[in-house]
Write a protein that binds this DNA or RNA. Structure first.
Length: 423
RNA sequence: GGUGAGGUGGGUGAGAGGCUGAAACCACCAGUUUGCUAAACUGACGUACGGGGUAACUCGUACCGCGGGUUCGAAUCCCGCCCUCACCGCCA
């Protein structure tokens, strides 16, 4: 969330930045400032009354000790009015401050100045394109047909067991999944990320910390009996490891990577492009997370983007990098790059990674700070990125690498799969 | 699921209505001493919000798991909830 103190002294800047998302926040910001002013006045009066009450209580204590019971009794009556007044003030402060918080929480993160203005995916900037469109044999098939042809992914079986969007991977299909996970984790290790195996359910506090709650309430699977949410991404449990902590400066940057299955209800999404692996309720993903010093976060964003691109290059996949416009960015992000792989049989780009700098948006919610050289606590910056999400990578691999003899496995994966062709 | 114990500052742990934002010890930081290191000694050392000051700092308030209650006054008493640990049961 945006810091209240920041809004107070940079209201116009906040409005200007949010306009990059196509949002007019002028009214909300005005209400925040007005309500905050009232809340502070109220709190000030409340605290003065509390101070007075504390003082009288202390005096009574002294009187009691020196045996002046009568004077003490007299003092007691003085507190009645204060207590009465306090009751009202406390309720007012609570109401006003809750309103301020509610309003602030409703605001998405302010985009970085380099984020292009825009409303939708059409306004995203293509930063670069790598590789070229692969030449496919005649009668090339989309991945869902390849999956059936080689009996490596069974979508219907998944429907029977759980429902649409829960595919069953079989044989070499399952091995390919495992190989990719292992490959991604090993690469992350080599790049200095510490591997984490987090819980794949989280409590509501964690959901709030990374911004899924209350913004995306309906998008997570929820187990009411235990009040737990199935994670939509490893970002949630991993980033929440740093909730309510004050880190030592020497601990930064923190670099974590973790594999988890991810669960998404995808409520409300629909459309033609959801066949096969394009959109699932359960999928596998290796996520990378960093907690860094503020002055480094934009360099780290570039580094993480380069790292993810390195993976795609090793897999030999034709991809492009998009700089998302304000309107297409996630709620919590200040700047996001999306990586899209080319799906040769579908003739379209598929998003397979999203790398974001959240600046202090998450760390404020998380109360994740670090102690700087001067011994002052300072808000850390958090970033994360998919490195990578499997389904669309698999879709692209199957489609782009199909040959008359079968599906060619990228060289870097062969040590992990133990086979070089799916036939 | 049952029974019992317990949640206090970075850690261990005292406190059992006012003298406690909190003893003591450890860790961390600064300084003194010392060929270096270590040891010893001295000092500083929680967080958040609000007010004042360029600032070092200072004043006020809140916080001893969370939420209520009793009281002039609560870490301390009462009620509810959550969590942790131990043992038993069940079990991958």
């Amino acid at each position: 969330m945006i810091q209240l103190a920041y809004i107070r002294s940079n209201a116009d800047e906040v409005i200007k930045r949010l306009s990059l998302r196509g949002i007019d926040a002028a009214e909300t910001v005005k209400e925040i400032l007005d309500t905050d002013k009232k809340a502070r006045d109220c709190r000030s009066e409340m605290e003065q009354n509390q101070a007075r009450g504390n003082q009288i209580a202390r005096e009574i204590g002294e009187l009691m000790k020196s045996g002046k019971r009568e004077e003490a009794e007299q003092k007691k009556s003085e507190t009645a009015a204060i207590k009465e007044r306090l009751k009202t003030l406390e309720t007012d402060v609570e109401t006003l401050e809750a309103r301020v918080k509610e309003l602030i929480i409703s605001l998405p993160n302010t985009p970085h100045e380099s984020v292009p203005h825009g409303k939708s995916a059409d306004d995203n900037h293509t930063v670069l394109t790598w590789g070229s469109v692969p030449a496919l044999p005649e009668n090339a098939l989309p991945h869902w047909e390849l999956a059936a042809k080689y009996d490596i992914i069974d979508f219907e079986l998944g429907v029977k067991i759980a429902g649409a969007g829960f595919p069953v991977y079989k044989g070499k299909g399952a091995i390919l999944q495992r190989a990719l996970i292992q490959f991604f984790l090993n690469e992350a290790n080599k790049a200095g990320f510490t591997e984490i195996q987090p819980p794949i359910v989280v409590n509501a506090d964690s959901g709030f910390g990374t911004g899924q709650l209350p913004d995306k309430e309906g998008q997570m699977y929820y187990a009411p009996l235990d009040d737990l949410y199935l994670i939509p991404t490893a970002e949630v449990p991993i980033t929440n490891m740093y909730r309510d902590v004050i880190l030592e400066e020497s601990a930064l940057p923190i670099k974590n990577a973790g594999y988890t299955p991810c669960f998404r209800r995808e409520a409300g999404s629909y459309g033609a492009h959801v066949r096969g692996l394009n959109r699932l309720h359960q999928f596998d993903k290796v996520e990378i997370v960093q907690i860094v010093k503020p002055e480094n976060s934009y360099q780290v964003l570039e580094d993480m983007s380069a790292y993810v691109q390195g993976l795609l290059q090793k897999l030999g996949l034709h991809y492009r990098v998009l700089l998302l416009c304000g309107g297409d960015m996630g709620f919590a992000s200040a700047k996001t790059y999306d990586m899209e792989v080319w799906s040769a049989a579908q003739n379209r780009w598929l998003e397979c990674s999203s790398v974001s700098n959240f600046e202090t948006f998450q760390t404020h919610r998380l109360k994740c700070r670090y102690r700087n050289a001067a011994g002052k606590t300072e808000q850390a910056h958090s970033l994360n990125g998919s490195a990578l999400a499997l389904p669309r990578i698999v879709a692209a691999l199957l489609e782009n690498n199909q040959t008359a003899d079968g599906i060619r496995v990228p060289e870097v994966l062969v040590p992990y799969t133990g086979f070089d062709i799916i036939a």
